[in-house]
Design a protein around this nucleic acid. Structure first.
Lengths: 223, 223, 223, 223
DNA sequence: GATGAATGAGGCTTCATTCAT
DNA sequence: GATGAATGAAGCCTCATTCAT
């Protein structure tokens, strides 16, 4: 699924030309993401979004049914970044440990790139009605699944301890998200790459088996 | 600082009788906490809060200047739980490792007790104007400080590796918060105590030095 | 059922004081009736109604859920005039023929008093959602029932031909309504009392039996 | 005046080809009539009309200046049915009484054929600005004139009482319209032809002179 | 001639806040 | 101190109308 697709996802439009729909929605989402991130969903008016997007307020309603739909599109676009970037980062890698670190690193970097949108996703999911919120949860579960699979592969290969995969996955995911959520403080403490490196060190300690440690030593230069 | 105190914290009231102010504010905060948690801050009206608190809408404005003040009081009351419960949990303990686990465990349990309010704090802090948000950040930093001190003591005692204290503190704090934030999923995976136990195991692996491990083995039954 | 009652009929209010509710609704209905009659329902804004009623727009929504509810109240108040005036006009009369003419005359006179509102009722009933429209139809059927009963009594007494009561009732009702509906033209032709007299003559010709005619001759001076 | 003509009546078009104009307008009017009848004028959007007519929204504005113009065309098309059908029904008849009944019967049958549009005309005339509403009134007066002439001829021929022609004309017209206006109830009571028959009986009683009655008896089979 | 995307004014409705009682 | 009716500003959304293609 590419970025285009999200823009046609689940939200009905009055306009039929698909390319136009995708373009307009991208325009709207870009403006909305910035505004929602800075002022919050409820403080941002549709007029604000329209003005920032350089279109009229009425136009927005040709591509969206609701103000809430705008939020949904924004959130889906963030989650979609994850689902696009993580697979891209591990594509071509075969070693389980390398794949694991690559996935975590990619996750952190997407979070960094879309930092404000990530925070927005944390704060605003509950502003959606239940059915649309469900879409978001599903997407989150999918992303977690990618991390969990990498973790699980390491366990199966005897490189990591036999931990509760799902719980540790949450630790990993949360670690990545924290970079955005606590950025106001963390940025005083270290930079992104250092944050990632510290995390690697921490999780290596927590998870690797002796065999994993030896393997890690060998591939170390590459990560 | 006790619960009463928060209710007199920083927000001006038109009523002079301090005991009454504290009582009324507690009433308002209790109602608001539940409503904000379930419906969100913006979807909850002052009339809703008044009705649930069993008072008139006008009354609220005698104890608060703003709707935002209500939110501030709610958030401060959550953060205050942390600042009350964690010291209580480690009072009387002297062993650094025991104090550490007790602090983390206490944190997780307060989060569990005030689960929805914790989520609210995550979501709604940005709904506050900058100056009032600053109050919240300060409170969060204080709480973190308590955890960081425990961690630091363990490091100084040679029981834990010389990690970046602040970063790891964030991981610990986030671990506790995650129980609330991801409760919708985690509750399917395990109960609170199991969650805590798994976390202890994880952090023990990640943090303990060989000396720490031996010490841990000795005190194990007690945690 | 008196006028007060209609004002508490079927529409929920946020305000509990019943007397106040009745007073405010009467205020709103009076303003709305005039505006809806002159400009039509859709051309009239709630702000217009509020201004004419001398209240704020927000206030209206404490006594009504919808703009459509305002229309409903207006229509019910018109229909209620019928249901109040016609029984009053025939109360105390026992002769079937006298009752019949008194009912028709009363109907015409109420229509005349509430001429514009009557036209409004004709035009606007379809602007209501189905369930509320049903209320209106019921009320209309009740009024028709009163006329039909008078007619039926005359038939039973052998004073009128054995016509299809319901069809003739519609003609009688429509005759009364026409005074409002076609007033723009009829007022050039005759006055109200002349209109009524001509109608009596017409319906007498159409309906009375020979016995009825003799009876009519006797009571003539009284009608 | 035929149906085509109405479509060129009084409303300016940007398109010059008259045949095309008439065709397009007929298309638009057909769609609008149905929608206005079912949903009302204000609830129907130009987009709705365009979709039902199978054209674009922009197209409509090449054949009409206003949304109100669409309504005007619709109403004129209804009134035009009357002005076409009634003369057709009495053409070739010479006996005044036969002409009278034929006119009334024709009126009722057109009302039945265009039942919803007739109701629409009742409800929506006031949605037009004064000048355009005047056009409608004129058209109504013309139709009434045809009925009044038939009635007047009967009176002159001594077949009917010397009633106020205009008032009775309204009774007759209203009788026909009622079939549409009260159809929701009348259809439970009788069919169209029975309704007409009852009306004939009623008006015969009300209007015929003894001479008229004898004449009526002779022609009875023919009506 | 036809299209349909774009505009933007305007209306309904909500709700934080006030104030007379 | 408490009430709750009243206010009115503000926002979401609709839809008649235009205009570039």
């Amino acid at each position: 699924m590419d970025g285009r697709d999200v823009m046609n996802h689940d939200v009905k439009s009055q306009v039929s030309d698909e390319a136009l729909v995708a373009r307009r929605r991208a325009q709207i989402v870009a403006a909305a993401t910035e505004l929602f991130s800075h002022q919050g969903f409820y403080r941002t008016t549709i007029q604000d979004v329209a003005k920032k997007a350089g279109v009229s307020a009425g136009l927005i309603y040709q591509y969206v049914t609701d103000k809430e739909d705008v939020l949904l599109l924004v959130l889906l676009s963030v989650l979609d970044s994850y689902k696009t970037e993580i697979p891209a980062a591990i594509a071509g890698l075969t070693d389980p440990l390398e794949r694991f670190w690559a996935a975590i690193g990619a996750y952190c970097r997407v979070v960094d790139q879309r930092r404000e949108a990530t925070v927005l996703a944390y704060r605003s999911t509950k502003s959606l009605p239940d059915d649309r919120r469900e879409l978001i949860k599903q997407s989150e579960i999918e992303t977690n699944g990618m991390i969990a699979a990498c973790l699980s592969d390491c366990v199966k290969a005897g490189l990591m301890r036999d931990v509760k995969v799902e719980l540790v996955t949450y630790q990993l995911v949360t670690f990545a998200h924290s970079w955005a959520l606590k950025h106001w403080r963390l940025k005083e403490v270290c930079g992104l790459e250092e944050y990632i490196a510290e995390g690697f060190d921490f999780f290596a300690q927590a998870l690797l088996t002796p065999k994993g440690r030896r393997h890690q030593a060998k591939i170390h230069g590459r990560t």
